[in-house]
Simulated scan of single mutants.
Amino acid sequence: MALNPKLKSTLVFCLKLVVTLVPAYFVYRNIVGAPDWDVGDLFRLFSWSGVLPFVIALLCLAVSNFTACLQWKLLLEKQGVHLKYGHLLKLYYVGLFFNNFMPGNVGGDVKKVYDIRMQGGQDSVGAGLTATFFDRLFGLFFVTLFALGMGALFFVHDDAQRAFVWPSIWIFLGFCLLFACLCSRRLGRLCSNLMAKVLPQKIHFRLDHMFNRFQYFRSFRLWVQISLLSAVTQSLRIFVHYFCGIVVGVDLSISWYFYYIPLVAIVSALPISIGGFGPRELLAQSLFAKAGVASLESVVIQLLAYFVSLLLSLFGAFVFLLGDKPEHPKVKAE
């Protein structure tokens, strides 16, 4: 018997609330369980010397948003959806604003797909969905590459750190298999045939249409372009955490951030909690403890990085409330 949609939505929210609060409780317990813990420790983390690193973190994230939007634009244009960069940047910031308030940091992606639909008409729905989905996947794929690179260079010979290379390896291989299925005609057809046996016809038709759109990304030049843009974008976003660490007085090499933050980013991207809270902080706390960072500092770094994102996304809130005149681009796949 099918569940009532409202009841189902309530149950899903309650489950996400549990997944948020339970890890948050352990985060809190680890902090207050430290010897000589005092609430004044939180205020002593901040000083005027942390203002400059915080401003630099803001600048790093702002620049990364510009390069990320350019990558999104390239993926849309490959499918024939041509919008001005300035206009897309506004839509991108609106998506960022929604990402900060929707479960699993994916609400903004849904909003971006909807906005592309409103800008380009019904034919642009598939392009917006495909470009946004691929953009998100490729970003997570690239930070995984960073973690693997750092692991091979600095941590593979460290017995205490070597274990964290394996999750990155399996995630990397999983992404490679996924991209092969999305962009390979033969593998895509095989996956489509398998899905036809287990999925309803309507859902299968939509997924099959989406698979066909991924074929537009079979371009060496496009992969070079988005690889360069992702390298810049994801590096800058990891630097945001690094400078947030400096704000609270954490003296840690940037290599640790390139090794740990990718795993934190992947967990926070999963739609299993409210806004990524809870699992993100617990994982960061557990990982950075291996580098000698206290529980309080490791959690505050994540919260500061989120606050930086929230501040910049307020521009998206302004655009959303003000409204924006839609464009009417020509939608024709290349």
Rank of each mutant, 00 (worst) to 15 (best):
G139S: 09
N30Y: 01
F164H: 08
V308Y: 05
A265D: 10
G275E: 06
K111Y: 14
F26T: 09
R213Q: 08
T144V: 12
Q215F: 03
V319S: 14
R189M: 00
D159S: 15
L312S: 06
A291Q: 00
K330L: 14
I301C: 03
M102C: 08
V300S: 05
G292W: 07
R29D: 13
V113D: 10
G149L: 05
F307Y: 02
L7I: 15
L178H: 07
G50L: 07
I56Q: 10
F214V: 01
H204E: 00
L187G: 02
F138L: 14
R237V: 08
F97D: 02
D159K: 13
R280C: 01
K111D: 02
K8Q: 03
P167F: 04
P262K: 13
V308A: 03
S219Y: 11
A294P: 03
L312A: 05
S168E: 07
L21Q: 14
P329M: 02
F43D: 07
A284M: 12
N212T: 02
F13I: 12
S235K: 04
G107H: 07
L74D: 02
L207F: 12
I56Y: 11
Y25V: 08
S64E: 10
L282M: 11
F142M: 10
L173Q: 04
G104Q: 03
R185H: 01
S192A: 14
L228Q: 11
V12W: 13
